[in-house]
């Protein structure tokens, strides 16, 4: 029972960050139809930026996280403007190839700038863990959990309660009609990519200090984000949130009670199963992907 409770706590923390990663990707994937292979690189960009701001520039830890999120947002807007805008209307594999190219350039650029040796960021949190009964968790993880939930809630409000969010939803449902109704599609695409990138950078900024920061950290993040998006369905924030927690649950329980060697297979097995029985993801609105 002790072990089970500990697994549940681990799952909640892991799941909240998975959700954050997934939401960014699902927005880009759903609204722009771009398979964003650079998502993991924006994640590691966020992590490196926290290192840069907190360790090298000496900013406060929390301020550094905010700076990293803003930087991720700007970088996303730049990528959209330079790489994606000229290719508007190209098919899905063409833009995907561009994003793979961007991924290769960014990952090796990171290694060129920072070197291959992993970096770590010290945090103002106490090292001694928070212990409740038999369950133990670090204070940093508690902070990451709360910050992730706050960001998830903020993006939910942004999409559902603001004018920009309304325009994004309209574009998601029918781009041409939205355009006719006076929605500035170019602006929506840029906002979407910037928002998605900011969320990825936020995930990296929060998790970088928890783990270590290395140029390859984005690879696994990208794969997991894809898994989450498929579980939740394209373009659904609620879906991505639940998908993130589900993936974390499967991994945690898989490693704890089945086999740690297959831990990372759990997510993919779920994906295959979901797609076979409910091809549009668990929570997607009815739609057809062409």
């Amino acid at each position: 029972m002790t072990e089970f409770l500990q697994h549940i706590v681990n799952m909640l923390i892991l799941g909240s960050t998975y959700a954050l990663l997934g939401i960014g990707l699902t927005l880009i994937f759903g609204i722009m139809r771009v398979v964003n292979f650079a998502h993991g690189e924006l994640y590691s960009f966020g992590a490196y930026f926290v290192y840069f701001a907190a360790i090298l520039l000496g900013f406060n830890f929390f301020v550094s996280i905010l700076i990293a999120i803003v930087a991720g947002c700007l970088l996303g807007a730049l990528i959209e403007f330079v790489l994606l805008r000229p290719m508007r209307g190209a098919d899905i594999d063409t833009t995907m190839l561009i994003m793979i190219g961007a991924m290769i350039v960014m990952q090796n650029g990171e290694q060129y700038i920072w070197g291959g040796v992993a970096k770590s960021v010290n945090t103002p949190f106490p090292q001694a863990p928070l212990v409740i009964g038999s369950v133990s968790v670090s204070w940093l993880s508690v902070f990451v959990f709360c910050a992730s939930l706050a960001l998830i809630a903020a993006s939910y409000l942004l999409i559902n309660k603001t004018k920009l969010g309304k325009a994004m939803r309209a574009t998601f449902q029918d781009r041409d009609t939205a355009s006719l109704m006076g929605v500035n599609i170019q602006m929506i695409y840029m906002a979407t990519f910037a928002l998605g990138s900011a969320l990825a950078a936020a995930a990296g900024a929060l998790l970088g200090p928890v783990y270590v920061i290395s140029p390859q950290m984005g690879n696994l993040a990208s794969l997991k984000a894809f898994a989450i998006v498929i579980l939740g369905g394209l373009g659904s924030i609620g879906g991505a949130t639940i998908g993130g927690f589900m993936l974390a649950f499967a991994e945690e329980m898989g490693a704890g009670y089945i086999s740690s060697g297959y831990r990372d297979a759990m997510g993919f097995l779920i994906i295959i199963a979901v797609l076979l029985f409910k091809p549009t993801g668990l929570f997607a609105r009815a739609e057809r992907i062409g």
Binding site: I92, M96, L223, V229, I230, G261, A265, F268, I272
Partner: peptide, 21 residues
């Protein structure tokens, strides 16, 4: 049974599962 982006992800997942096996 699935198309487009979903097909892409199923095939990635398949490869990843085979690798882990």
């Amino acid at each position: 049974r699935v198309r487009g982006a979903y097909f892409v992800i199923v095939t990635i997942s398949f490869a990843e599962v085979v690798r882990l096996v």
